[in-house]
Design a protein around this nucleic acid. Structure first.
Lengths: 358, 358
DNA sequence: CATGTTTAATAGAACGATCTAGTAATACAA
DNA sequence: TTGTATTACTAGATCGTTCTATTAAACATG
């Protein structure tokens, strides 16, 4: 009678048996602790190789209730800015010997709550979230009361949460000032969702720069859209159908700016000549598009590293360690704003450090 | 005497106590099974809310030894092509009620083996890997013998593994034929690492197209580099320092092509006019750069969805279900190859479907 | 009324690791 | 010889859940 083998997992018990020692001894070997002799240790290691043993971290965490998993939840990985952010977070956590697991919400709040729950259920000891649009502030605030949580890039209305963000107001102000300096007077603000803090901040900077020049803020020039390429196309189309066309546009971010440039092309207009365009983020592609995009540079990787740092502080020191980081945002002038003279040299200067070699 | 509370986790036992039922009853409620009355069920749910219960999936998996976690390990998330691939995989797995966890290797094989191990340790039931450069084929092959594994984008030398890849040979052949049709004779092949199958396939297509026209394959025109923007810069610089400069270049992928275009700019050359450039992948940015990039379109999201499909088949049907998927690759003519006339209309045609609205 | 059948509910073993508290054996000092 | 450290090793409890087997009651059915 042939016995059908139930394909049971290889466990610590099997190893113990094969090596002729106790479970406890195997466990010690597994964790590299002392208290087991050289010969026994060797036998255990051999047995693990022979039987194809896979450590069961779930079982281990059950007992010691402290995993090293942290979750990162990103709103849109197809936006290069967030991809770079994610890589920055990932690298920093890795260096500190945490195991980052990543997930993408694609701006779905429903998916986001699923992911947050799932990551906690899997024993994550902390979470870095770049929140989806329309995220419920109270939900995250409540979670953060007894769980290490850091927001990245997007802060959330009315909640006192740790966050790593950039100088949105200052950046937008510098950008607007630059456009004004080039002689533009009718400057649109394109894209982004109005309910978000990040947009409110950038909008405030835009407004402040206008009013500093004695130019009245005109709500008709502020056009909301999704913070995506497609949103940028929509926003620019809307801007072009205004009674009088704007001279220039400050875009919510670089992908919106690229969408806006596509829309301009469709209308036979040339960015930088017919309408000045400025973006925000300085993604790697910004220097490559045509014309090269003038933008506000935010170092996504550094932002990510700081988000990681804040999270680790919270994990180690508890709720007492709720801090914030604000990364700087500086203007990078390329061609799309219409400042043609400066283009070539600056473009070159900003290109090379984009990517580190292996 | 104030008693210091050990902050123990809220467990199913606490809920049971609070609701005045047994652990088993709580477990049933948790999983939405029948066998518990309406009033008891309500009490349990209330208690869970009151106490802030978090399900411990590790403990559950320990007992039932079947999680729904699958891992996806990506070689370079800062390359938009792989970001789109990741999003495609993610979406497909999500639809099938699996919980995808993602991680980035940044082309590090060391990191890759760590991640593979970690994901198995955390109970992943399968893995989709877009392998890092220099991945050890035997290692993955051995793993795949008793573990559901699918390779995405990059196949691995000499191993019979499930994979979802694209028509590399056909795509490169079409691209080369197109460049030849435009009158180019001295066509370089730029970028990519020579040890990879994917590059060998693309190179074979390139070579086949050349030889079909009676043009001898010239190894000096084939330049290796990292498959990154920086690699593209290096490769093009090398190509420009050849004794005689090439007429055109087929680039390993789009980011290499963009790097190549940067290098051309540095040398004061114009892509499409002085040297024709063709890429591979058709990332969203390809249509936006200057000039718009002629490339071989590969639908990364569809590739990802198919990788997910193959993995699910394997998970459900075991090792018998090792299949392969080959996505098609078609030429998209824009400006960078030098075929100026067709640019505008095609560029427009290919732009709109890139991104789906919310 | 006896006899099934369904439903609600539970106790106790199990999953795979770690931790505690211990035993046995050796080495070293007095 | 005895006492004391140190080292190698282990049995059994434990973590939070699910599963199996069982009981008890409620409800039909002939």
């Amino acid at each position: 009678m042939l016995q059908v083998k139930e394909k049971r997992n290889v466990t610590i018990v099997d190893i113990a048996e094969a090596a002729g020692v106790s479970r406890a001894a195997v466990s010690l070997v597994l964790r590299g602790k002392t208290g087991v002799g050289a010969s026994a240790r060797a036998r255990v290691q051999q047995a693990m190789r022979d039987l194809g043993y896979v450590y069961n971290r779930g079982a281990a965490n059950l007992r010691q209730s402290r995993s090293s998993v942290v979750g990162m939840i990103i709103n849109d990985l197809t936006n290069p800015f967030f991809a770079e952010l994610a890589v920055g977070i990932d690298r920093a956590l890795q260096i500190s010997n945490y195991m980052p697991f990543m997930a993408n919400t694609a701006e779905s709040v429903v998916r986001q709550v699923e992911l947050i729950r799932s990551m906690r259920e899997h024993g994550a000891v902390g979470l870095i979230v770049s929140p989806a649009l329309d995220t419920d502030p109270d939900e995250l605030a409540e979670l953060a009361q007894d769980f290490p949580l850091v927001l990245a890039v997007r802060r959330i209305a009315g909640s006192r949460l740790a966050s790593a963000v950039s100088q949105n107001r200052e950046g937008a102000q510098a950008a607007t000032r630059h456009l004004l300096g080039l002689g533009n007077r009718k400057i649109a603000f394109l894209g982004g969702r109005s309910a978000t803090i990040i947009r409110a901040e950038r909008l405030a900077g835009y407004r402040a720069a206008l009013e500093a020049q004695g130019i009245a803020f005109d709500p008709a020039l502020v056009i909301e859209s999704m913070p995506t390429r497609l949103g940028g196309i929509d926003a620019m189309n809307a801007a072009l159908s205004l009674p009088t066309r704007p001279d220039a546009a400050l875009c919510f971010n670089d992908v919106v700016a690229m969408g806006a440039m596509i829309a301009l092309n469709h209308h036979g207009l040339v960015p930088g000549r017919d309408i000045g365009i400025v973006g925000f983020d300085d993604i790697a592609e910004a220097a490559l598009v045509s014309p090269p995009l003038t933008t506000i540079a935010v170092n996504a990787e550094v932002l990510g590293e700081n988000a990681a740092r804040l999270l680790l502080n919270q994990i180690r020191n508890g709720a007492s360690a709720i801090e914030n980081y604000v990364g700087d945002a500086r203007l990078v002038v390329r061609g799309s704003c219409g400042a043609q003279g400066q283009t070539a040299s600056i473009q070159t200067a900003c290109l090379m450090p984009i990517q580190k070699g292996p």
